[in-house]
Design a protein around this nucleic acid. Structure first.
Lengths: 335, 335
DNA sequence: TTGAAAGCGGTACCAC
DNA sequence: GTGGTACCGCTTTCAA
């Protein structure tokens, strides 16, 4: 290991001067500076980041807790996080939790041990263990796309209620009256908000909500397949199926097509998230676009404010969505 | 900040005893241990990870350089990396380079400054800057799925040559003779290996390779769309299109379907990677499955061996692929 | 079994 | 402008 001392000896100066040359060159005589830089180069010296960090007490890192990495929607958020973090001099520690509480606890506790300065949670759970709950109170933490239940942490999310309404109004305007719903994680607030929005729009039109047409409990392709199967088996088939993310929607689309049904002629399908590939399936998916990249960036900005103890203008940022009316939704089939 | 000193005072012992209680309790008297643990709990003490790391000189972190995060194939690899790293007590630092050399340099240099102990490269470039090249010689680095050009770093990858052959033989067995190719990043060895494999199979059957039927230069959906357009515009249309990843293939599939062509009746399409959604498009994609998760795990194991200066059994691991014959490929159309 | 103290590699204050 | 040195928080040797 080539350290600052070796360099100082090589340059014939003190370690203090070496440090200054590297951090605040303006305070060092040009002549000396050159000597030092030569020694630095010659020794192949790099300041030890760990050492600097102990002093400053800051790791300039943030942990991101994500339930899984294969969902491109999450990845787009993380891309935004990474981008903003990198710009502000922070490094992103990846915490793939797989929804496992113990993993969450472990990753979250990295903030408690100074391994990271702050935490971004993409899931809706409070990531700290019971034992750490008290310590966690002052930890810089933001949740993005979800909200952490029963805790006053700031969050960035979509107006899921309004988005739910928008989807439903879109379908109702096409004359649909009988709906199927394929949900993801039921415990999430996202789910509840979206469903509430949909219900409200239905209620306004006097369309009853039938609980038995709400199926599924996981945000993946298979859920879409099995959910579609389940809904098709009903005595009265829905004419439109609202899926709670694009993976589910693509799974459902796949299954319906397999069954010889035409989308949207026989059944309409809608998704959420606008993952890239959703515009390249046949037919392209009607879905709700979320500004995922932007959400990630904002989360970082808020988090860094918290880390630096700067006041937050607001605890919540509700971002706009956009209903993309593509080709998987259309007029209700009249029988 | 509650540090070890505060705890030691609270417990009425020395800092050394506190440290020992936490790291090697067996060396501490039970009675003392209890006292200390109570103080620890009461103070809400967490050892400062940064401080421990300066001492040990190890950050127990690895950087992963990835060209982008939205490609689910990469994410699957990273999932494998994360999984193995977590199991072995390492943390993953995410380095989203966007193919930008400067970003690569910055992330790579984290290993030089002790911010990380090793590096996994998912791209094929040598990630260090000219200036750092010499220092980088002894850096633990592994590349996965690609190879780093002209450098003797270990790598984990697929037998892309054989995979290319397999795809081509599959299509040839269906009677195809006129092929289109839509490539991703041309500079990558992956591309070259796969293409070489395909060419070899063609040569064996006496089928000429026509350079003008090789289009595309980026691993994304749009490349598939524009590539398909380009190939369809040829005077003699290919009866099969080999795409160099699934995103390209799905883009091409989308475009062909748009044009009213039937896959595989009119044209066959094949991909690479077997990303999840490739099995849920219509028709499901014939593609080459890569053990992405496994590749990530292996990369970590090799890397940690390097970090610990353990000898490597071998510098290269070539993993098996599997040709998934799904429904996007079929008999050549006889005109 | 425990404590004092010397580091780990840098930084920054204070004095010259 | 530069050097000496205390210190960041923890670990570990050495001596008691």
């Amino acid at each position: 290991m080539t350290n600052i001392k070796k360099v100082s000896e090589l340059a014939g100066v003190s370690t203090a001067t070496v440090s200054r040359t590297l951090k605040t060159p303006s305070l060092v005589n040009v002549k000396t500076r050159e000597k030092v830089m030569i020694a630095v180069k010659q020794a192949g010296y790099r300041p030890n980041w760990l050492a600097s960090s102990v002093k400053s007490g800051k790791s300039n890192s943030i942990v991101v807790l994500v339930p899984n990495l294969v969902n491109p929607f999450f990845m787009r958020i993380i891309e935004g996080i990474e981008n903003a973090a990198q710009e502000r001099g922070y490094t992103v520690l990846l915490g793939d939790t797989q929804g496992d509480q113990q993993r969450e606890n472990e990753y979250a506790s990295m903030v408690l041990s100074n391994r990271a300065d702050g935490l971004i949670q993409l899931d809706h759970s409070f990531p700290f263990s019971e034992a750490d709950a008290e310590l966690a109170e002052k930890v810089p933490m933001v949740s993005v796309c979800e909200r952490i239940v029963d805790k006053p942490y700031p969050y960035i999310e979509l107006d899921n209620y309004a988005a739910g309404r928008a989807v439903m109004n879109h379908l109702i305007s096409y004359g649909h009256k009988k709906f199927g719903f394929i949900a993801g994680q039921r415990s999430s607030l996202i789910f509840q908000d979206r469903l509430a929005g949909m219900k409200s729009a239905m209620a306004e039109e006097g369309i009853p909500f039938d609980e038995s047409y709400l199926v599924g409990a996981s945000y993946d392709l298979d859920t879409g397949v099995s959910g579609a199967k389940e809904l098709l088996a009903k005595s009265e088939q829905p004419t439109a199926i609202c899926c709670f993310n694009d993976d589910i929607a693509m799974g459902a689309l796949y299954e319906l097509t397999r069954c010889g049904l035409s989308v949207p002629n026989d059944i309409s399908i809608t998704g959420f998230d606008n993952v890239r590939v959703s515009g390249y399936v046949n037919p392209p998916l009607t879905t709700v676009d979320q500004p995922a990249f932007d959400m990630g960036q904002r989360a970082v900005n808020v988090l860094i404010k918290m880390i630096k103890n700067e006041p937050l203008a607001r605890k919540r940022e509700i971002l706009p969505f956009q209903l993309l009316e593509r080709e998987s939704s259309g007029p209700a089939k009249t029988t």
